[in-house]
């Protein structure tokens, strides 16, 4: 049976929605019947990735303006899970964000992109729809 999920969500640019978005992603993973791995762990990872990406959009890309919005899309089929978080802000240079290596343990900030990169197979930040999109992919097969 075909296993294709496509979710689009728009939320205000506020951290109070982190829990809601994270839970939507985690619950969606539990519907991926064909995923052969640990759905519990994958769900928790997707909750984490969505939370970090949303915080990134709110705090760094949209300049913490609560009147703007963040758009999120989550697509999954039998082979791949793709999460896209869109922002309308100035954006940032992903290559300048500490994220390839584990940040200094005594730094208070700078772990978000590192965590996303650790839990997903590919992470790209690029221009899209007049703004920017953080695109994160995870193989499911």
């Amino acid at each position: 049976m075909k296993n294709h999920i496509d979710i689009k969500i728009t939320v205000p640019n506020q951290t109070r929605y982190l829990s809601l978005i994270g839970r939507i992603g985690e619950n969606m993973v539990h519907e991926l019947d064909s995923f052969p791995g640990d759905r519990e762990a994958l769900g928790q990872h997707i909750n984490m990735v969505l939370t970090e990406a949303l915080v990134n959009a709110i705090k760094h890309a949209n300049s913490t303006d609560p009147n703007t919005e963040v758009q999120i899309s989550i697509n999954a089929d039998d082979k791949e899970l793709v999460i896209r978080v869109y922002d309308n802000g100035q954006g940032f240079d992903l290559d300048l964000v500490p994220g390839c290596n584990c940040p200094d343990p005594l730094e208070e900030q700078g772990r978000g992109i590192y965590i996303i990169r650790s839990l997903m197979d590919s992470v790209v930040y690029r221009k899209a729809n007049g703004g920017n999109v953080l695109e994160m992919k995870k193989a499911l097969g």
């Binding site: 909750n47 984490m48 939370t51 208070e108 772990r111 978000g112 965590i115």
Partner: peptide, 16 residues
């Protein structure tokens, strides 16, 4: 049940 990078950062702040 769930901690993100901000939560971790706050604990590091407490450590310092």
């Amino acid at each position: 049940r769930f901690i993100d990078s901000s939560g971790l950062g706050v604990l590091v702040s407490g450590f310092k």
